[in-house]
Structure formats: C-alpha cells, structure tokens
Design a protein around this nucleic acid. Sequence first.
DNA 1: GCATTCTGTGACGGTTCGGTGACAGAGGTC
DNA 2: GACCTCTGTCACCGAACCGTCACAGAATGC
Lengths: 230, 230
Amino acid sequence: MSRSDTPLVLVVDDEPAQRALLSYNLEAAGFRVATASDGEEALLVVSEEAPDVILLDWMLPRVSGIEVCRQLKAQRGGADAAIIMVSARSDESDRVRGLETGADDYITKPYSVNELLARVRANLRRVRPARAGQVLDVGDLTLDPEAHRVHRSGAELHLGPTEFRLLSALMEKPGRVWTREALLDRVWGRDIYVDTRTVDVHIGRLRKALMAQGGDDPIRTVRGAGYSLD
Amino acid sequence: MSRSDTPLVLVVDDEPAQRALLSYNLEAAGFRVATASDGEEALLVVSEEAPDVILLDWMLPRVSGIEVCRQLKAQRGGADAAIIMVSARSDESDRVRGLETGADDYITKPYSVNELLARVRANLRRVRPARAGQVLDVGDLTLDPEAHRVHRSGAELHLGPTEFRLLSALMEKPGRVWTREALLDRVWGRDIYVDTRTVDVHIGRLRKALMAQGGDDPIRTVRGAGYSLD
DNA sequence: GCATTCTGTGACGGTTCGGTGACAGAGGTC
DNA sequence: GACCTCTGTCACCGAACCGTCACAGAATGC
C-alpha cells in the first residue's frame, strides 16, 4: 500500500538530541517523521511534504517559535496541518499567546511520551478525519478507495494503479500544490528512486484518463513548483 | 466449517488481559475474533476485515471510545457493523451519549459472559440476518449459506467448498475490493499458509463455475489490488 | 527579439501482473 | 484397491503497466 496512508509529523527543534528523541518515539508509534532545525527549514518542509501535524519548539534560535507558527499558518499547506507548540514554560500567558498565534495545541515540558503521542493523535484526527475508506469528493470527481473506483460526473474512469494513487494523493488536499518530490514520496514511497520526470508522465496519463470522456483538465501545472488539483 | 460464514467480532480494548478474556469467551462460543488495542488499530481492522460486531471499550487511552465510535460509524464498512459500547460506568448520561454517537448497544461492567454473548448474538442477528439462514443476493446471484447452494438466474451452480466460501466472502460486501491477503485470511483462515497465487487459481475456478451456463463475468479484477464482485 | 528553462507527450524496451492448463498429492467413497 | 473430487503449486503466455528518453512546444528571463 502507498505511503500516503501513514501520517507525517514534522518535528521542529534546534536541539539535535531532542529531534532524535522525538523522531524515535514517533516512528516507534508508526508515524512518518520529518525534521527541521529552524523556522526556515520548517517552512520548506511544509511546502514540500505537507505534514499532518507539526511539533514546534517554542524556543528556536533567530526566529521565535511564535513567529514561525504565524508564518506556517499563513503559508498555504501549513494551514492544513495541526501545530502543537512545545514549551519549557508552563506559563499561562505563553499558552494563550501560542494559541492566539494559531497553534492548535500546546504541550509543556516535561511531558510523557504517551502524553505527546496522545496529543499528536488527537490533533491528527481533527486534521485528517479517518481518511481510510472514506469516499473522496472533489468537484465532479469521486474516488472510492474501498471499491477502487473513480467516477467523473457519474461516468466511471479506468485508471492504472499508479494513476489511482496519484489521484488519491491530489484529491486529499485539493488546491494544494504538490512538488514532484512530494508526490514521488507519497505515491511511490520514499525509498524508491525514480526520476522526477516520471511524475510528469503519469500526470499526463492521469489527465488523459480524466478527460477521456470530455471535461476540462482538473489538474493545474504550477511552473517551477508542481501540480495541484482544483 | 466455512470460515466466511462464521461471524467476526472485533474486540477493542487497551487492556491485554481484557482482550484475552473476551477473545477466549467469544471463540469458545464459536465466533471468529479480531482485536485492536486502540482506535486507530480498530479503524484499520474494520477496513481490512469488515467485522460484524464491534465490542468497544469506553475507556480507551488517548482517544475516547465515543470518538472511536463516531469514526467507526463514519467509515465505510464500519457502518455495516454493530457497535456495542462496553463501559465501567452505569451512568445513564453515558449511555445516552454512547447511543447518540452511533453505538447500537451498550453494556456495563460487571457483566456475565452469558449476557455478553446474548448481546453479541442479538446484534449479530440484526446486522447480518444471513446468519439465520437468509440467502445472500447480489445481482442475479443467490447464495444460501444454510442449504449450501448457489443459483444464478434460477439455475443451480456447482461449486467446490473453497469456491463456495470465496463467493460468500465476495458477496458479503459487493463492490468492495478484497486483497488476496484479505481473502486468504477470510476464506482459508489466518493461520494457514498458502501462496497468494492460489487465490488467483480459485478465482479462476469460481469464474468458470459462475459462467458455466452463460452470463458475464461478475468478478472484477483490480490490477495491483485484488478482486471484487459487482 | 533571443536564449534558456521547463513541461507535454509519443515511442519503446523491460518488467510485472494476472489467467490458465497441467499435474501430483490428499482425502473420501464405493 | 480403484475411482473420483478437490486442492495447491508451478510454468508459461499475453496483456497491462512502468520508467526513461527524445523532441517539440510553451513559458520565462533578459
């Protein structure tokens, strides 16, 4: 099955030891993990990989966590993710400020691993409600993962396995622009190496299939960035 | 004994001891049992194995049973199962909340094994009347589990035992795509090891039998995924 | 305008996947 | 024992699918 079923958690912390610890625990719990050591990197990862949950350290070098949080929320794609602020201070005012800035949740050190995982799962549920098995609906497109069927305005379309997974990924966050790398990761799996141009070809094939029975091209090419479904 | 005729009960409880106890009692009563220790796992099992009854502990770690229940009901496949909430509290408000969330029944600890089994059977009858000897009907196909007979457009077909079980499994959720692994699990049993290609061969034999007296092939092959009955 | 970069797409070789006939073994029946 | 049915595995073939490339055309920058 495709990787895209496993939720992605982004850990933003400047301490390598903290990142390693969090990654370890999260991966042990079955999540995919991406890391970033500062706000800039975090923004990059968010635009590339569209994480589902972001664990954001309050005390970051150069740019404060709050600022990063604000930017993440402002950035397209970041708005889809749940942001959990991690802070050493249990100060109430910090908490309020964090949540005001757009954080979805707030957790103070020291915390237990279970507590952390609980927060991540809880936010994940909110952000990505029970995706498995749910019928996806975007515009005149309908994708039923369980029956493995795709319809456009009622008419059934025939897609190959890769096109099917590609369309699932695109339909999960309509409007979002996916880089080729992100799509490779989600549709092909992160350990497989294939050329990024392969994505182009499959997007082409997907377009052909989607327009086989008429209708506009629902896939938008963003030059220099990637593709999105509208 | 035909595997797919045996109802599947999913036990969701975070306590290993509870799971073991319930499994033991349910299996002794002739049910097949699957277990899950949290909501996430439960959702997975539901989408993979399509249980008939779900015994859901109210007090789950991290995610409350209510939340899990809501998600199960929302998920395709979960809606077909009866959900019985198991709670330590006999509180009336809890009961109401549970039922409001979509639970089909409610049982409070302490309960006797007989009481538990009675509830499971009662809900099973409601949810899967086929158990009571009711025939399965899909398109022009009719399968009578009790009489062990299959008809297509009135004409009786001859199926071997494995083909019969295979068809029962497929007919239980028409349209749903079953992976070879899921079918092996359901038709052959989870402890038996046979090659997944064996499924192909039996699908072939089943098709042959189904089309012996004319008619289209009712089984759809989904490349890279599995089979489904339409 | 021109040069450059990026994208769409047809073609192609190679691979994987699924259908099927053949076969040997297990188990049951007479 | 002699049949018969059913089962799981294998080998083979054809079809579907995949990844890459080359080239043309579009978009962008200067």
